[in-house]
Design a protein around this nucleic acid. Structure first.
Lengths: 136, 136
DNA sequence: AACCGTTATTCCCGAATGTATATAACTATA
DNA sequence: TATAGTTATATACATTCGGGAATAACGGTT
């Protein structure tokens, strides 16, 4: 008896595609994930890219995390992991200041987000095409 | 400081592709997984299909599990999960008898294995194609 | 100098997996 | 009837993952 796994984060204000792309056919679904791996594990995946988008939107790691139902601790670790693996940093953080600080994407960060979505869209089309012929 | 995750099973006698298909390009790899989901979670994925192949090869869940470095308990749970979600059973088990019992694939089971590998091969080609244009 | 909101960091905890281990149940064969 | 090798099942344990909470550091602004 296995309980349904809890979603990794709550979709909040935006209509969010699921982290697992899926295609249903007669009771079965072809699902899948893709991600880009760097020198030390995952570099960019669905959740990380959504996080980057939220950071760009809110200008803050903590607000981005909260908007996804993700702990700040986890979000920070993801940001750190991304920046440590990127050739050029994708995220710029600043501490202190009038508003306490903030975080924004670099140009490379915006390009990375766009690049990932491009591949992800093709992946969804792949699942769509191949999932149509499931018979078990 | 995160330790490299241990491989889910040891490749033993056969040359086994990794569970995560991957394509390298300039330090980054496009990796991914696909699986077929049924009424209650995963129905068939890479590891499950390899397990089915091993069962067909050895005629026993316990030997198949051992050959993959997987606990019998886990292998049994996977087999049970597969059969509970399949329209027609993919695996036939027998208890007792001269050799204590055994397990073999049904015709539907062999077809499922082949069907999954077909899609998986296409998926690897997809990763190969899309992974060639990674730039970050 | 005090304030304030955010980043940066640490420790503790619970959920989810999967291994290890032990044991019962089964049944053709000798 | 006893044997043997496998399936079937439960309990205990280790590991991993991420949330929660607490705290320090930071630095414009007032």
């Amino acid at each position: 008896m296995r309980r349904k796994t809890r979603p990794r984060f709550k979709p909040s204000n935006k209509d969010l595609s699921p982290a697992d792309a899926a295609v249903r056919k007669g009771g079965y679904e072809l699902k899948g994930r893709i991600w880009i791996e760097g020198t030390s594990g995952t570099f960019l995946g669905y959740g990380r890219v959504v996080l980057l988008e939220r950071i760009a939107e809110f200008g803050s790691i903590s607000k981005a995390a909260k908007s996804m139902g993700m702990s700040y601790r986890h979000a920070w670790e993801l940001v750190d992991s991304i920046n440590r693996q990127a050739r050029r940093p994708l995220i710029e953080t600043s501490v202190g200041g009038k508003k306490g600080g903030g975080t924004k994407l670099t140009e490379a960060g915006r390009e990375a987000v766009e690049g990932f979505w491009n591949i992800y869209e093709k992946f969804k089309r792949f699942l769509n095409k191949e999932g149509a012929s499931l018979q078990f």
